[in-house]
Design a binder for these strands. Structure first.
Length: 422
RNA sequence: GGAGGGGUGGCGGAGUGGUUGAACGCGCUAGUCUCGAAAACUAGAAUACUCGCAAGGGUAUCGGGGGUUCGAAUCCCCCCUCCUCCGCCA
């Protein structure tokens, strides 16, 4: 959500920011509605003020046992006009809110301009892609070779884009989640959260999934929503509150299932576990003071990278261009892990600084120097467990042994197992 | 699911139709006093929107929404939520 005052005071800058996202100028429509609303509001408030004054007078007159009939008639006569103004003000206000709710965040001046993922810019690369396996098996081939990954049965009980893992593979998934949480809580200062993965509409609005992206979500018959990421639950922890300045930055982490319709991804990554309706993800969320968020963003990205470094997985970090970054993001780093089976890097984490965009939607504030200011919110995957599993399978497959070697850091979580083989 | 009772400012807690944005207490901020602090005293302090160059006004907000009324924290309806008891249950 945007600050109307900002748009009012500098519409050109706002339109320029939208142009970077490939959107037409938004300010003319916004300002027209804004002006209309304020004019109606002023008229309404004026008439309300008159009414209040006269009602007060009636009270005083009645206290003195005087006859107030004529004043009462006067106020009664104002009712139609008031109702009319109220309705008009509400209608225009709703229209304005609806418009604003669907406009993406302004982006950081420093990020590259671009239209698609092809214009993203790599900023660092760690580890060397491993080419030792001539066959370059993908995770599906590996999982099925081990007899521990079953898409057919998953399709039978749920449908497309689900998977069933068994035995050591299921344990490996759990190990990955545990390992990541242990690192973030034990070394990076995040506090672990376990909470609802079913949330209400207002919560989904706060982080920006609603109203624009409802088709990407799963909704229950009761009307609540399955979270597409733990970012939703954790960021909203501070919704509608004034957070004590001294407690910032707040850092939260959780490992939760995530649910996505993948409505816009028909035909994309239809094979394997890359893109599922349900997957586990370890998420990082930070709530900061405004002047802390840029440093926090770098820090968070490093926290996510640490996981891949420890797992010995090659990766690169890129900064998303204006055309590829998400709705609520001011600046986003994606971390892409090397997948031998695909012979390319694939996204495994996305770390975004949302600035005050979500905070304004959520009404999440803090007091800085006695002033209420919106906090800044950041979120990042630390990292996606499902994709990390794929990366481990493909990067640690040993053709000679026909086995997946367990990375050292995961061994403590695998109950003595050092490799997974048939 | 059944029965009943609550939701008021940072907290506690008054307040059943009239000048209540809301008594009182605690907490908080500033000042006086003090070498300093405590205590005491004095003053200040909600949030959002809006009008105004400013000074300073106005409107809304007592869980949320709707209604009754000249006027609603107070009355009515719906919803949310918390608590107690019963039932069911991982």
């Amino acid at each position: 959500m945007h600050d109307l005052k900002d748009i009012r005071s500098n519409p050109q800058a706002f339109d320029a920011a939208m142009a970077r996202r490939g959107l037409p100028a938004q300010s003319p429509a916004i300002l027209a509605l804004d002006e209309k609303r304020r004019s109606l509001q002023t008229q309404l408030q004026d008439i309300q003020s008159q009414r209040n004054e006269k009602s007060k007078l009636i009270g005083q007159m009645k206290a003195k046992k005087e006859n107030a009939d004529s004043v009462m008639a006067e106020v009664a006569a104002m009712k139609d006009k008031m109702a009319e103004l109220e309705a008009a003000e509400k209608a225009v206000g709703d229209e304005l809110t609806d418009l604003l709710s669907n406009i993406p965040n302004v982006q950081d001046p420093g990020i590259p301009d671009g239209k698609s993922e092809d214009d993203n810019v790599e900023i660092r690369r760690v580890g060397e892609p491993n080419h030792k396996n001539t066959k370059k098996l993908d995770h599906v081939a590996i999982g099925e070779a081990l007899g521990l990954m079953d898409f057919d049965t998953a399709a039978k009980i749920s449908g497309a884009r689900f998977v069933i893992m068994k035995g050591a593979l299921a344990r490996l998934e759990r190990a990955l989640g545990q390992f990541m949480l242990d690192v973030h809580t034990g070394e990076h200062g995040y506090s672990e959260i376990s909470g609802p993965i079913l949330v209400n509409s207002q919560t989904m609005y706060g982080t920006g999934q609603l109203p624009k992206f409802r088709d990407d979500q799963f909704q229950t018959t009761r009307g609540d929503w399955l979270i597409p990421t733990a970012e939703v639950s954790m960021t909203n922890l501070v919704a509608d509150s004034i957070v004590d300045e001294a407690s910032l930055p707040l850092r939260f982490t959780a490992c939760t299932p995530c649910f996505r319709q993948e409505a816009g991804a028909a035909g994309k990554d239809t094979k394997g576990m890359i893109r599922q309706h349900q997957f586990y993800k370890v998420e990082l969320v930070s709530i900061t003071k405004p002047d802390q968020s840029e440093a926090e963003h770098e820090r968070m990205t490093k926290c996510a990278e640490t996981i891949l470094t420890r797992l010995g997985l090659p990766f690169r970090t890129i900064v998303l261009c204006t055309g590829d970054a998400g709705f609520g993001s001011r600046k986003t780093y994606d971390i892409e892990v090397w997948l031998p089976g695909q012979d390319r890097y694939r996204e495994i984490s996305s770390c975004s600084n949302c600035w005050d965009f979500q905070a304004r939607r959520m009404k999440a504030r803090t007091k800085v120097g006695g002033e209420n200011v919106f906090v800044h919110t950041l979120n990042g995957s630390g990292v996606a467990v499902g994709r990390a599993l794929i990366a481990v399978l493909e990067n640690y497959w040993d053709d000679a042994q026909q086995a997946v070697i367990i990375p050292d850091v995961l061994k403590p979580y695998m109950g003595g197992l050092t490799k997974i083989s048939k």
